[in-house]
Design a protein around this nucleic acid. Structure first.
Ligand SMILES: [Mn+2]
Ligand SMILES: [Mn+2]
Ligand SMILES: [Zn+2]
Ligand SMILES: [Zn+2]
Lengths: 134, 134
DNA sequence: AAATAAATAATAATCATTCCTATTATTATT
DNA sequence: AATAATAATAGGAATGATTATTATTTATTT
């Protein structure tokens, strides 16, 4: 006997989700849920923070955005391509960076029998805004 | 006129801190504050979670342990040498790994005028415990 | 237009972490 | 050994980020 379940989850349009997607797609600063909430409020005054979190999670699941963790708080990224971040310990800015070096994957596979999916890297330091005079 | 302030902060012995240090130094699993708390309770039943957090922070400041962030929760590491972690998305284990490649530092300096202090890397994947048959 | 159920706002609950404070314990001094 | 000075503690309240609950609203289907 074969039983097949179909769980159909119709996702339907919502102004709130559209706005949230739009905000993430137009912000380069890897905003937090709260920043997105405050921004969304400007055009949807009654939007609630729970709605923001729920939709961010949904957008993440559908692969439209990416969640990154900055120490212990979540920030959201429109850039879903594999990339890494420079984090300035001075101003907190996150700067996108693409390191195309995949050479560690086979090495780790060999040394640890560990199958690499992705590499999440935070490069901590000081950005050019705080450069000392030379 | 020269004013010199001395802020003297005598750190004195406490059984609780000794136990917490001992637990971190004898645990390879990068335990959370809660794990450390539960373990410490076995020998100091009245220890409080606040004491665990306060002392972990103090040990981190004194350079005896290191804090790492696994998504959004703090874990503690006796290994204060620069190193990175393999994270199994299956069982959550963190495995220490040392990548001695420092070649990205000058490149980032050049491309972004960004001064690198340290690189925090989580290599996400599947550990050998869940290897599929070949 | 009516029916269906996904999405919402509002709010309560949860979880990790920090803060507060009266009491206790460690260390230095007599 | 007793006293004084104050760092550290236990216990609990407060905070901040995130998730869960639920009655109501809204998008979509019939
Ligand atoms: Mn990014
Ligand atoms: Mn480690
Ligand atoms: Zn900066
Ligand atoms: Zn594993």
């Amino acid at each position: 006997m074969i039983i097949i379940y179909f769980l159909i989850f119709a996702v339907r349009f919502s102004h709130q989700r559209e706005k949230i997607r739009e905000i993430v797609y137009n912000t380069n600063s890897h905003p937090t849920a709260d920043k997105i909430f405050l921004e969304a409020k400007k055009s949807i005054p009654k939007i609630s923070l729970g709605t923001v979190y729920r939709n961010l999670k949904q957008l993440e699941i559908s692969g439209e955005i990416k969640t990154i963790y900055d120490d212990n708080i979540a920030r959201y990224d429109w850039n879903t391509e594999p990339h890494n971040h420079l984090k300035c310990k001075n101003c907190g800015d996150l700067i996108d960076i693409v390191l195309k070096d995949k050479s560690i994957h086979p090495k780790i596979k060999k040394d640890f029998k560990f199958n690499v999916d992705k590499v999440e890297m935070f490069i901590i330091g000081t950005c050019k805004k705080h450069a000392k005079q030379t």
